[in-house]
Nucleic acid binder design. Structure first.
Lengths: 151, 151
DNA sequence: TATTGTTATACTCTATAACTATA
DNA sequence: TATAGTTATAGAGTATAACAATA
């Protein structure tokens, strides 16, 4: 999608306006744009942020568990962790209880980057919901949580 | 993402639960899954459905206008329209007012497929919002419309 | 037998750049 | 000069299939 979005077109979106799926997609693309656009020196992608957040809340988590929680294949996780490790944000330690798996944790730098990114992420959320009042923003979050907690 | 989503993990999502961006992404992936999974013989993707919907509501629209409305590059539209044309759903006619552009319209079959797909899309929406009451579903749609109308 | 991490490979979606024919 | 459609090409992001090590 990117920046080339629509301008003051007289184009009618018609039935799309009645579909939650369409609006979810639109809003999600905008939200990722705000997230990415708000990143300063650290340049964390939404996908990388998800990984960092899971490690923060589940110290020593395995790559497979992160993959399951994010709904991606564990083979896909390898390159993502590689990138975060190469940047010195994530550390792969051999698990003490299962010699097949890596115990993931954040370096001090990784923790700093995460905390900063979380702040920027909330700023991005605010941009995404700029058209909403505070109450409406809280309602939207609550409704989406309800939608997702069943998944 | 696909089907490999999370199970009854004890993994905590932590800060992610406070981010609308995360929940939008999660819900959108689920919604696309419901859309795609609900497709029977016609096998329309969410992206193709968007194109069909725009042509329905803007007869004779150009490829570039569709691309702008969906926020993709016009080079990207070529293959999408090619696919729909090869399946006999969309017709490229030379525009009568601008010899550079194609006027797009749906064949009768394209219209049938669209109408059916719209029905299936609404069923997919219902699955996505299965955890919500009717009132809540209406609220969610209204809030997302408000978010997107500013974009 | 099942799972973890890994590699090799391929597929989908999308963008950029350049071209032509128009406007 | 700018725009519409097209092509060639490349880059993300992701999946599948197979393998060795371990459970």
């Amino acid at each position: 999608m990117s920046e080339a979005a629509q301008k003051k077109d007289k184009t009618k979106i018609g039935d799309l306006d009645t579909l939650v799926t369409y609006h979810l997609r639109r809003a999600q693309v905008a939200a990722f744009g705000h997230f990415t656009g708000g990143m300063k020196e650290d340049k964390i992608t939404p996908g990388q942020f998800g990984v960092l957040a899971l490690i923060v809340s589940n110290d020593g988590i395995s790559q497979s568990a992160v993959a399951r929680a994010l709904g991606v294949e564990r083979s896909t996780m390898v390159a993502i962790i590689d990138g975060l490790q190469d940047r010195g944000l994530v550390i792969r330690e051999p698990s003490k209880i299962d010699r097949r798996s890596n115990a993931l944790r954040l370096s001090d730098k990784g923790r700093q980057v995460y905390d900063h990114s979380l702040h920027l992420a909330h700023l991005g959320d605010a941009k995404t919901m700029a058209a909403l009042s505070e109450d409406e923003a809280a309602q939207l979050l609550a409704l989406l949580q309800k939608v997702n907690h069943g998944i």
